[in-house]
């Protein structure tokens, strides 16, 4: 099995009002050295082993997990270790 860790972030050109609100709160807490906050999503997939896992994950991200009009994604594929 493979564990796929998918990170989805808003594109640089897209404003993030949620991130701005969190930054404002950090400033209110006197963390004025925090200069930007961007909020994204983290998704884990557990996928059966196959030769084309990466290719599949690309398609899954393009079609469903991310909206590429406003979001970028990257992912890491790890061997799932059974404990």
């Amino acid at each position: 099995m493979k564990k796929v860790k998918v990170f989805i972030t808003l594109k640089e050109s897209v404003l993030d009002p949620q991130g701005q609100a969190v930054m404002q709160s950090l400033h209110n807490m006197e963390y004025t050295n925090v200069k930007d906050v961007r909020i994204g999503k983290y998704i884990e997939l557990l996928v059966e082993d196959s030769a084309d896992v990466a290719e599949q994950v690309d398609t899954i991200c393009d079609k469903l997990l991310a909206n590429t009009v406003i979001e970028n994604y990257r992912y890491e594929i790890e061997e799932e270790v059974h404990s």
Binding site: L15, P17, Q18, A21, N67, V69, I70
Partner: peptide
């Protein structure tokens, strides 16, 4: 249709 929706500017 083209484009996407974001959260309202003032949340």
């Amino acid at each position: 249709l083209p484009g996407a929706m974001l959260k309202n500017k003032h949340l």
